[in-house]
Amino acid sequence: MARYGLVINVKRCIGCNSCTVACKNWHQIGAGVEGRRRVVDVTSGRYPRLSKWIFPISCMQCDEAPCITVCPTEATFRRKDGIVALDAAKCIGCKQCIDACPYHARYFDEKKGVADGCDLCSSRIDGGLQPYCVESCATRAMVFGDLSDPQSDASRLIRSEKGIQLSPQKGTKPKVYYIGILGSALEMSIV
């Protein structure tokens, strides 16, 4: 069975937030809510010797996902292909998943009264497509793929570019990997 994940090549990200808007466009998520994707900017150091890192963050698609464990109605669930998804019809708006997520990856949609987060565009994947933000990223900075297949582009990239996870010490086993970035810069984004 497939085990889908995402590789974010920070070397290519220009922080344009096209993916942020892409997700809202594709999933028809209105303005005024956080949405499923955000871009963080970590600038440190002093002029002119500074380091500036910009990269996107969304649901890490954890293999050990506390959002699933805490959800009282099984609205948040894992699909057979490993994707953590959410059935809005079952969501009672208790926000427990939002609180449980160590990556601040979920948001609450006040209008609909439900939690929401990235599901790697599972409905597109079911139709044989790529996640929309991956497809339309302004710089092709992301690679989607099956991590159980060692020959997939995503698996190869993680191996060859030594992909790292954000805060692996949280123990949730993310399936989103970053390449081309120092672990320390990555960590700074969630404090």
Binding site: C16, S18, Q28, Y132, S136, C137, A138
Partner: peptide, 26 residues
């Protein structure tokens, strides 16, 4: 018009869009 996607056949943009293009509906 409910949503937009990048046109992969366009040789200039090859399916990519910037935030302004993504926001066409609004």
């Amino acid at each position: 018009m409910v949503r937009v996607a990048g046109n992969p056949y366009n040789p200039l943009s090859e399916g990519r869009l910037c935030p302004k293009g993504q926001s066409a509906v609004q």
